[in-house]
Design a protein around this nucleic acid. Structure first.
Length: 425
RNA sequence: GGAGGAAUGGCUGAGUGGUUUAAAGCGGCAGUCUUGAAAACUGUUGUGGGCUUAUGUCCACCGUAGGUUCAAAUCCUACUUCCUCCGCCA
């Protein structure tokens, strides 16, 4: 959600932002709705004022033992009028809300303008691309050889798009989670949280997944709860409807959660293996910061996520997303992509975004500024640090050997009783 | 799942249909006094929105959403959360 006054005063900026993001939203229609809404509000409020004044008078007369009969009957009409106009207000308010919740955040000026992925910019590459003296296997093949991934049985249990990790496969998953959480908490000072995996509609709206993306979410209809698509949702909403102290900021959380995505509309895409699954594990980083620091904090956040990958010795690149690829709520976003030599693809394992005050306004998260002594919306950021399923793909495919065995990256050995390599039994 | 109780401003807490314009206290902020501080005293006090160049002014907000009424913090209904107990349960 954007500042209402800002939209009124800068409609051209909003129009350009929406156009650059490829969002279809009729700003002129919104402005007309806004005008109409204000007109009705003025009308209904002056009637309410009248109502309040006359009600006081009636009270006064009753205290003086006078009969306020005439005033009472005259008020009936006014009250009916108020009800009528309020119905109109309610109607226009719905329209107004639809607009205000569907106007996207404005891209930062440093974001490359363009609609397609072609406009994205690779801004950094790290690590050597591996050269194999054999045809590298895919993680699906490796998983089968080592008996650590079982997709067939997973689909028996739950359907396609699910994975069953087995033996060292399951242990590596657990080792990675611990490694990442330890890194972020011990080295970078994030506070670990473990949130609910189910959230209500309000939380989903607060971070911007709703109302736009409802069909992408798993929903429990009896309770109107949603399985979280990312820890961003519960963790950002930790401070919903709160006023934070300036000294508390920045607040930095890291959380492991499973993530659930229906991936509706992407059937037939990346259906094999761990590339696109309905349930995956992720360690998330979330920050609540002072507005003037948010772009610096984004760089730090990105670096924290990169550190995970560097430690695991995986070649990666960083992509600055163009306006068209930016998510609805983001003003700026970097993706971290890993090279998977088996399936020969770049894998997005992290998106680090600055949402400026867009989510804070929806979720109502403020802080009291010491300087101005006023309440101000904080800025929120989040990034994966990092997403597991695809990270496992990269580890298996990059660190594989000719015989199908896989070398365990150093930082994980501590969590695996010193194990250096996974071999087939 | 069942029975009962509760929800009021930053906090404590009064208010059970019309002098409430939400009392009072604490806290916060500003000032007086003081070498400085404390104490004391004085003043001030929330959020969102509309109108207004401004100063201001009006509307809404007493857990949430509806309802009754000329009028609701107050009465009614549903829901949410918390507390006490019962049942079930890893």
């Amino acid at each position: 959600m954007l500042d209402l006054k800002f939209i009124r005063e800068n409609p051209e900026v909003i129009k350009k932002a929406a156009r650059d993001k490829g969002e279809k939203i009729d700003i002129d229609a919104f402005l007309r709705t806004d005008k109409e809404r204000r007109k009705l509000l003025t009308e209904v409020e002056s009637l309410k004022r009248q109502k309040n004044e006359v009600s006081d008078k009636i009270g006064e007369m009753m205290r003086e033992k006078k009969n306020p009969k005439e005033l009472i009957s005259s008020m009936k009409g006014v009250s009916q009028k108020i009800v009528k106009i309020e119905a109109k207000v309610e109607e226009i308010e719905q329209k107004f809300k639809y607009f205000i919740y569907n106007i996207p955040n404005i891209p930062h000026k440093s974001v490359p303008v363009g609609l397609g992925p072609a406009s994205n910019k690779v801004i950094k590459e790290w690590g050597k691309m591996p050269k194999f003296k054999f045809e590298p296997r895919t993680h699906v093949e490796i998983g089968q050889i080592l008996d650590i991934l079982d997709f067939g049985r997973a689909s028996k249990i739950a359907g396609t798009g699910f994975a069953l990790y087995k033996g060292l496969g399951a242990r590596i998953e657990r080792a990675l989670l611990n490694f990442m959480l330890d890194l972020h908490t011990k080295k970078y000072g994030y506070t670990e949280v473990f949130p609910p995996f189910l959230v209500n509609r309000k939380s989903m709206t607060g971070t911007g997944q709703l109302p736009k993306l409802e069909e992408d979410m798993y929903r429990l209809k009896d309770d109107d709860l949603f399985l979280i698509p990312t820890a961003e949702v519960p963790v950002t909403n930790i401070h919903a409807n709160e006023v934070l102290e300036e000294e508390q900021l920045p607040i930095c959380y890291t959380a492991y959660t499973a993530c659930f995505r229906r991936e509706a509309g992407s059937y037939g895409k990346d259906t094999k293996g761990l590339m696109r699954v309905h349930q995956f594990d992720k360690v998330e980083l979330v920050k609540f910061v002072k507005p003037e620091t948010s772009y610096d904090e984004l760089e730090k956040l990105l670096n924290n996520a990169e550190e995970v990958i560097r430690a695991l010795e995986l070649p990666y690149r960083i992509v600055a997303l163009s306006t068209g690829d930016l998510s609805f709520a983001a003003s700026k976003c970097y993706d971290i992509e890993l090279w998977a030599p088996g399936i020969k693809k770049w894998l997005e394992v992290s998106s680090c975004s600055n949402f400026t005050d867009f989510q804070a306004r929806r979720a109502n998260i403020k802080f009291k500024s010491k300087k101005s002594k006023k309440l101000q919306y904080i800025h929120t950021l989040n990034g994966s640090g990092v997403a597991l399923a695809r990270l496992v793909i990269a580890i298996l495919e990059i660190h594989q050997n000719k015989d199908g065995s896989v070398n365990i990256p150093r930082p994980l050995r501590f969590y695996l009783d010193g194990l250096k390599m996974i071999k087939s039994a």
